[in-house]
Simulated scan of single mutants.
Amino acid sequence: MNINFNKNNNGLVPVIIQDNETKNVLMLGYMNEEAYRKSIETKKVTFFSRTKQRLWTKGEESGNYLNLVSIQNDCDEDTLLIKVQPVGPTCHTGSDTCWNEKNTMSFGYLSQLEATIQNRKENQEDEKSYVASLFRKGINKIAQKVGEEAVETVIEAKDDNDELFLNESADLLFHYLILLQAKGYKLNDIVNVLKERKK
């Protein structure tokens, strides 16, 4: 990997630290060539501290190491993206990230949909909400709807109408997310089960 440590007079390159699993950005630091080599050798991310003017391995005092997964160079060869498995919070303040954000898994639109479902669950008195009405009817009705949508998805899978198949698949996933929350769970709980099976 060609890294241009000499592009700036100080011999440092910026380093973006990203959680390998959640893909959240955890912090920004700087490396010189020595810090880069030490990170590769120890598999723990080491920076060059501009305030202390020395190498600094993240977690050397707190134990909150950044275990190295991969290093990528950008197109100009002067910025690194380092993917890590963090041990504990990343920020010295105790926050998960240096932007005071939670380092939680996000599933994009599905996470937004889960938030909407949770809101409907917490506000079941909303007479206009289909989701709220399902929560009012209880777990048996919700489970029944998942069963119905599953059967309809299977039926459409055997036919050649892709649009109908995709629509039934969307209905199935939507009602399954409702069922998960009716049972007190979310999509991330299922992901954790699948990850345990991989071990």
Rank of each mutant, 00 (worst) to 15 (best):
E114M: 06
I178A: 10
S169R: 03
L12S: 05
K23D: 01
A150Q: 10
R50G: 06
S70T: 13
G63W: 04
T116V: 08
T42Y: 05
F135C: 04
E148I: 14
Y185G: 02
E61Y: 03
S111E: 12
L12W: 04
C75F: 09
V131R: 10
L81T: 02
N119I: 02
I3A: 10
I3Y: 13
N32C: 08
K121V: 00
K137E: 09
S62F: 04
R136G: 00
N10Y: 05
R37G: 01
I190W: 02
R50E: 04
I155Y: 07
V131S: 10
I40R: 15
D76K: 12
T104Q: 14
A157H: 07
P86L: 11
K121A: 02
I178Q: 10
L81D: 05
K23R: 10
V131H: 12
D160G: 12
G63E: 12
V193H: 09
S133V: 00
M105K: 11
S129N: 10
N8I: 00
N188G: 02
T90D: 06
P89N: 15
S106Q: 09
D126R: 03
F165E: 01
L66A: 13
S70C: 07
F174S: 14
L194D: 04
V87Y: 01
L66D: 12
V191S: 03
L172I: 08
G184I: 09
C75H: 13
L80C: 05
T57H: 11
W99E: 01
S111D: 14
D162N: 05
I71C: 14
K44V: 02
I17M: 06
N10S: 04
L26C: 07
K58I: 08
E41M: 13
L194S: 07
K83L: 14
V15E: 10
F48E: 04
L173V: 09
F165I: 00
F48Y: 15
Q18Y: 01
L172F: 14
K38E: 15
K198G: 01
D160I: 01
A132I: 07
L180S: 07
T153N: 02
L12K: 03
I40G: 04
E21F: 14
S49L: 06
E114I: 11
K102S: 13
L172W: 03
T97F: 04
Q53C: 05
L28I: 05
V193W: 09
V15Y: 10
G59F: 10
L194Q: 11
W99P: 00
N103R: 15
Q72H: 13
C98I: 02
K199T: 13
I3L: 12
V151Y: 12
I155V: 06
V69C: 06
H92M: 06
L164G: 00
Q112N: 15
H92S: 11
Q118G: 02
K141L: 03
T116S: 13
S133N: 12
N6P: 01
V193K: 13
D78K: 08
I71M: 15
Y36T: 09
H175W: 05
S133I: 00
D189Y: 08
D159Q: 13
A170R: 06
K58S: 11
E114Y: 08
D19R: 08
D96M: 06
I17N: 07
L113Q: 10
F165R: 14
T90F: 07
Y185P: 07
K128I: 00
V154K: 11
K137L: 09
L164D: 04
V193F: 12
A150P: 00
